[in-house]
Design a protein around this nucleic acid. Structure first.
Lengths: 348, 348
DNA sequence: GCAGTTAATTGGATCGTTCCAATTTTGTCA
DNA sequence: TGACAAAATTGGAACGATCCAATTAACTGC
């Protein structure tokens, strides 16, 4: 009770042993006698001692058990679920996480990384803000701290990556629409000069080619990756001389916007126009009509990213690794495949 | 380059000064000469020194610049936005945050709090998991660390609180529905034995009384605070002998579910049935029909909570404070108030 | 040029832990 | 009982910063 804080020395004094013994007890060392261990543990509880990880960390040359997570937009439920997935495995591995939202600002991201470095993180998982350069990660990587980039990539950076298979997912989705008889299929929403966008459009393009259809550039309408962007995209699509009858949307948010826009134009999504999303956020299942979408399982991706990082931390030697997470098409109502009586609903 | 890590001593040696001087430069002390400051800073950059906050913290009796945040459900966009609001002010105040998701588990929450304590957080903001007891916070509070509970409260705990005005919000919403001519107004969704639920139902009850209407218990249908819960609630409500013509929903998620359920029953929300939500999550504005809801501004609440905590950290002396955040009814289409031609849409 | 200030700088001691080598205690066996 | 090994315990030196008192350097004014 000297200065408010109880230390190992206080415990040692009270239990009548040396601080070294207390330390051994704290680390559950087999070297210490059962009786003394019990006595020390009792004293610890009695005095309300709290372990000071900062001090311990200072002495131990090994890295801390803190990892950094930065996402570019936590209000987007895709990234929120990604973060939750990471949280799960980090928690149970005994790690604690600095989580920050870069809000798509590279400056903010830079500051956060610097701050995390000063706090001695053992590793970093992040979805790069748009415009992130390899140089932003250089010092971190140089100091041997493992870094995993998820969802988006950073060209030229020697970091591990974990992306979903955008190309295959888009291809599958478009194939499905073709099988349903559609001949004019648009690609709606998203921001054009991003890797994710390019990959998904590429999948769309190849599926059309495969089906003997022409991939007209006018059918690719880039706006933003949001609900509002979806509304804007479908509005423009419907004004085309030969409007599409179905669309693969950049992501689920845009797909919901497309549904809204269709209704505003007097068309019912699913019945009058086939809509397919990308991501499979939780709302996709309960929306009306339920959204047909390419499931990337954000929580699962978060878990995998966390496992990858932990593996690298434990391995010591950092060997960048690139993982492509497979995806699968989940067929629900919005593409027009499910007949009305098939409508399934979860009500508990 | 001795052991991979550059310390103040390395800098001192390289710059030809003492470690004390380097330390003073790091803290931007006015005591040091401009020329030496420049030289030291140059060396710092040259050797790629990174400040070790852990070590500094050990010596400084003052508290760290780490704060803990725990939310009960990050996948719920209300809490995600709350976290983003906190992140904003914490970032700019130079704090870094441990953010965890308790996933509504008190055990998990307890572990996280213990871990945060060992890492020496300066304060904690959390939305208590259901079932949290005052005892769970006792040690934290006893050690003088400021704690702010948001959204939900913990009975008996001597912590600061920040809630939205559930009572007034619900009352306003129901008054509005009464003004629109509704006479049978239900309360749908939510989990019954929670404070938030009780307060909102109370507001509903009193507004009805004020309007000379009877608050029948059969019109309160508790399920869960999710979209699925909303679907279930409206299904049951429509089976009542005298079904309601409008409803105040526990939150926006439930309100969206109610809209889904109405459509499934062949009724159009807004036109055939008045729906009002609670929270004003981002999707409320862009949904079709746009949701009339009680805006609690989650990001703003997060910011206020963070400011409250910072105030308490700086004050030193912890004086629990209870803040009720005011709310306002945002009238959109789902209550049937806006005529069709008033339909506003955001498309950029 | 020297006393008296003020401005800069500096060497320990210290924070709370872990690690190491050394020491003490206990146990075993001839 | 003494010799030797094994088990348990311990004091001091780190880790990388800050703080304090003390020292040195640089200015004043007369």
């Amino acid at each position: 009770m000297n200065k408010g804080r109880v230390t190992v020395i206080d415990i040692a004094r009270a239990a009548g042993v040396s601080k070294s013994t207390v330390s051994l007890v704290l680390q559950a060392s087999p070297l210490v006698n059962e009786a003394t261990r019990a006595k020390v543990n009792a004293t610890i509880r009695e005095l309300g001692y709290v372990y000071n990880r900062g001090a311990a960390n200072l002495r131990q040359s090994a890295s801390s058990r803190i990892i950094g997570i930065i996402v570019n937009d936590l209000t987007n439920s895709f990234f929120a679920e990604l973060a939750v997935g990471m949280d799960m495995v980090m928690q149970s591995a005994g790690y604690v996480q600095f989580l920050s939202n870069s809000a798509e600002s590279v400056d903010r991201q830079r500051e956060v990384i610097a701050s995390m470095r000063e706090h001695g993180i053992a590793g970093l998982i992040f979805s790069p803000a748009r415009g992130t350069e390899a140089a932003d990660l250089k010092p971190l990587v140089a100091s041997g701290i493992p870094v995993v980039a998820v969802v988006r990539n950073v060209v030229g950076a020697k970091v591990s990556t974990l992306f979903s298979d955008n190309y295959a997912g888009a291809k599958d989705a478009v194939r499905h629409l073709i099988a349903l008889g559609h001949r004019r299929i648009a690609f709606l929403g998203g921001i054009s000069n991003t890797t994710v966008f390019t990959e998904r459009v590429q999948g769309w393009r190849e599926a059309l080619a495969e089906g003997g259809l022409e991939a007209q550039n006018s059918l690719v309408i880039a706006t933003t990756a949001s609900r509002a962007g979806g509304v804007a995209a479908i509005e423009r699509a419907l004004l085309l001389p030969e409007p599409p009858t179905a669309a693969l949307c950049f992501n689920d948010a845009a797909a919901f916007g497309v549904c809204d826009g269709l209704r505003a134009a007097g068309k019912e999504p699913g019945r009058d126009f086939g809509v397919v999303g990308f991501d499979d956020v939780i709302e996709a299942e309960t929306a009306v009509p339920a959204l047909t979408t390419v499931s990337v399982d954000p929580q699962g991706m978060g878990r995998r990213a966390a496992q990858l990082l932990l593996k690298q931390i434990n391995a010591g030697r950092v060997e960048p690794e690139a993982i492509v997470s497979s995806v699968r098409l989940v067929v629900r109502q919005s593409c027009g495949a499910g007949s009305n009586d098939k409508t399934r609903r979860i009500s508990a």
